[in-house]
Design a protein around this nucleic acid. Structure first.
Lengths: 331, 331
DNA sequence: AAATAGATTAACAACGTTGTAATTTTAATT
DNA sequence: AATTAAAATTACAACGTTGTTAATCTATTT
């Protein structure tokens, strides 16, 4: 069907091994022949056959990404970034939306060079259920997995936020986030809040912890409305995600509350601000670009066969912008 | 690295061609040997090498999906469905989030059996920029493409909704949707509304057409709030998407309006209702399961080499549930 | 002009699998 | 027990590519 190097060889009147070398710009072939061959390849619309190539090279220059939930928005920005970085190194990423085990099996059959698994909130899978000869990297919470993992210290992130707000004088600090048991990633954030506030559980701070049932904009909107109509003495809010924060801002503007004059907000997530919100957000978290870079490096490294140090926890940073101000600043 | 059929052959004391046949359950090998071989394969954790297989079979049992925007939620449900259907036929789907041209090139190198391109709102690409020997199927609006395309008659869908509402006595019918020029798919819906209402453009129905700047829940929420606080005589709303509808319902409940008593709603999109909204929605559109089935069939068909009739427009259907009622029904 | 080193090109095995043709084993018939 | 047909197994080429080794060409030196 497709054009092969043999077709090109015939057209060019050379052997097909010369064509192979020419196309990969080997120094073993003379410039003029190289140019001639490349031109013919171009004309014929030649596309190298990965199957054949990876069969002999045992390399496909492809990274398989296990992406069990296409529906989440947050990780999308991250995967796009990672994709771009890998493209620079002439790697291609391919996503699978199948169940983790079967996605990994598929990628093994395809002999991808590495597999990146996005830690799923629901399924924490045991290593034993996985069969792979391709190296695997996890992104997300490490539970009982022994595969190398990259994760963010979410707990510390929220603590940073609490501590900062306390330093600048805030006393009544609320937390809006998803506390549901199913998502360990979200739970980490809540625990960070509890620890920073010196309590053990949500019930000890009934007025300050507003659980949402998701991470969408309207979840934040509703939580904020509930919170702010009952508790007028709250001076600062920590939000569990970027989308929640957008909802919170929507609520404040509806209640005619000015940020940061009437209310300080620090948001988890450190993604480039796409929407034009009324204020630039103070955030806490690891910038996606940094996460992407780390994952990229780790991927490249495990491909080389260098076992990376088993687990990398990225430390969050605090970014102060215009959504928070010292307590009493405007009085 | 990986286990090959030759390894299995050695363990089983048979030739590797027997192993190949045994693993594909060929009638050419005796049952006992077959069983023995399969057990060994299982034990060794054998994974067939797609590269080698597709090299000789010229088939990879894989469908490449060009997925330029991982961030959209609506198509996610669809692709998940398609994935499931194809899995039944032992096909695997792999997504690429690269630019259309380069995604198609990648899939050609991988010798996938077919490529499914999700029509992107922004890029309407010309055929000439595409180099492919793998058959392509488009989902979405057909512009100047000559590739086979499957699309939904969005214009007619909205008309159906308008006509039905008129039949049951509604006069003041509003439309909430994205009218921005960048997305031809959304524009089609608006045109459907204009045509059904016998006007040429939005400006002729200033109070009845509420443009949103997106298709998210809060876009619907805001549009509905604007609409309903200015116009108390509106008796029915047609919504451009499922998410918008969710926002609209949020607004009505906040304004203490009862659906369908005070307001009838018909929503575009026909997806299985996951959230538990207060009412079951009357919808207009093509059920995702039907779209998925069509795409699935078309894909399988073009793989067989049967050129499908160039373009398939799916006709929408009206589903009446509890979110709309005849005008004056409750008086 | 012959010899030789260096540059360029060609030949060919290998990768893991499948399909076909060839061979061996088994069972049935005489 | 010898023949034969059927069943089961094996051998081997092929898929498109790469890397290594072998062959040829070119230019330089004598």
């Amino acid at each position: 069907m497709g054009i092969t190097i043999k077709d090109i060889a015939k057209h060019a009147g050379v052997s097909y091994s010369t064509v192979s070398k020419a196309l990969r710009d080997s120094p073993l072939v003379k410039k003029p022949t190289k140019i001639k061959i490349m031109k013919i390849a171009e004309e014929l619309g030649y596309q190298p056959n990965v199957a054949a190539r990876s069969l002999v090279q045992k390399k496909s220059f492809t990274i398989g990404v296990v992406w069990p939930s296409v529906e989440r928005i947050a990780p999308s920005i991250l995967i796009t970034k990672i994709n771009d970085l890998l493209e620079e190194k002439s790697y291609t990423t391919l996503l699978s939306i199948n169940k983790v085990e079967s996605a990994i099996a598929t990628f093994n059959r395809f002999q991808v060079d590495a597999i990146l698994v996005f830690g799923e909130n629901k399924t924490v899978l045991s290593d034993s259920s996985i069969q792979t000869t391709v190296p695997i990297l996890y992104y997300g919470l490490k539970e009982n997995s022994t595969y190398p993992t990259i994760d963010v210290n979410r707990r510390k992130a929220i603590k940073l936020a609490v501590n900062y707000l306390q330093e600048i004088g805030h006393k009544k600090i609320a937390f809006i986030g998803d506390l549901s048991d199913v998502d360990p990633l979200q739970k980490e954030k809540a625990i960070g809040f509890f620890e920073a506030m010196n309590v053990k559980r949500a019930s000890e701070l009934p007025d300050l912890v507003i659980p949402t049932n998701g991470l969408e904009v309207h979840d934040g909107f509703h939580a904020a409305k509930t919170l702010l109509s009952n508790n007028t003495d709250i001076t600062a809010i920590i939000s569990g995600s970027y989308d929640l924060t957008r909802g919170i801002l929507r609520a404040t503007s509806e209640l005619a509350l000015h940020v940061p004059k009437d209310l300080s907000i620090i948001s988890y997530d450190n993604i480039p601000q796409s929407d034009n919100l009324e204020v630039t957000l103070s955030t806490v978290g690891v910038p996606v670009t940094r996460i992407a870079k780390q994952i990229n490096e780790a991927l490249l490294s495990i491909i080389e066969g260098n076992d990376i140090q088993d687990s990398i926890i990225l430390e969050p940073e605090l970014n102060i912008a215009n959504s928070c101000a010292p307590f009493g600043w405007y009085d």
